[in-house]
Design a protein around this nucleic acid. Structure first.
Length: 272
DNA sequence: ATCGCCTCCTGCGCGC
DNA sequence: TGCGCGCAGGAGGCGA
């Protein structure tokens, strides 16, 4: 589902409605998503003020006075602002209701997402502390990217999708970044030149920034927090275009499988 | 340490 | 119309 631009768009969308508000009630309609929902801990935040709505990687972070909530949308999740108590549809698993009458609602058919609690420093949470740098910050730079690449025998496509290397590069943006950098997704990371890694670094930043600018990619499940779809899909060069003409050279776009995920690329533009 | 495979789950589009 | 199949935006965990 959502890749980083979608999560960022969601975060920005929900923020003005709930940041600074007081949590009135947690409504949890299931016991678990990917992991158990820590109901008692989440309920312990009722009455507290939501100090900040933020994002780390693909986690939406809601920071309260004595603890925080970490929300991940998995493959099929979305969050939106509804009126507290609004009609519930299938797969609306959790609502966080606020005293202004609004609620943050998580909808996630496949339930690969999660809604967790932590009362320690957010950066030290088990799932957060191992995450790589944010792609749009200077922490994600050529020195780092180059150093991480040396000695790696992995294919570059699966490597850039590892959130421990850099967060936020999902299947769509990995394919699109490699296309724009003219690098074959099967290329072995440790054998890529610094020049090519520099190009990839820049295309990743560019593609993610452009996607955020446009409100995320609109595929099946993604709906922004205001209910409007994103508009990036029309700009995709290779993702989901198997058999169609490459936008640059006209050759048929190829589809292969890497790490149990589909990879789309142009055999002509991305020869090596 | 590194890598690749498996897994969680529902929904949708396709071919028959 | 119905059924079975394959595939879908993530990523932790495991075994080799």
């Amino acid at each position: 589902m959502p890749e980083l631009p979608e999560v960022e768009t969601s975060t920005r969308g929900i923020k003005p409605h709930i940041q600074g508000q007081y949590l009135s009630r947690m409504v949890m309609r299931r016991d678990n998503l990917r992991w158990a929902i820590p109901k008692d801990e989440l309920k312990s935040l009722e009455g507290e003020r939501l100090l900040e709505v933020g994002r780390r990687g693909k986690y939406i972070v809601l920071r309260f006075t004595s603890g925080a909530m970490l929300i991940h949308l998995g493959m099929s999740g979305n969050v939106r602002i509804v009126n507290a108590g609004a009609d519930v549809s299938k797969h609306d698993h959790v609502d966080a209701e606020f005293t202004n009458g609004k609620a943050l609602r998580l909808h996630d058919p496949r339930r690969f997402g999660c809604w967790l609690y932590t009362n320690g420093p957010i950066d030290e949470h088990t799932l957060i502390k191992k995450l790589g740098p944010e792609p749009l910050t200077d922490d994600f730079n050529l020195d780092y990217f180059w150093a991480q690449s040396r000695g790696k025998k992995q294919a570059v496509k699966t490597w850039v999708m590892d959130s421990h290397l850099v967060v936020g590069v999902g299947n769509i943006y990995a394919c699109e970044s490699l296309f724009l950098a003219k690098i074959n997704p099967k290329a072995v990371v440790g054998r890529l030149s610094k020049k090519r890694l520099e190009r990839l670094l820049h295309t990743i930043k560019h593609v993610l920034a452009a996607a955020i600018e446009q409100g995320g990619t609109s595929l099946k499940d993604f709906v922004g927090s205001d209910g409007k779809p994103g508009y990036f899909k029309q700009e995709l060069n290779v993702y989901g275009r198997s058999g169609e003409a490459c936008t640059v050279c006209g050759q048929s776009v190829k589809q292969i499988t890497q790490g149990q995920r589909s990879t789309f690329y142009c055999g002509e533009c991305q020869k090596n």
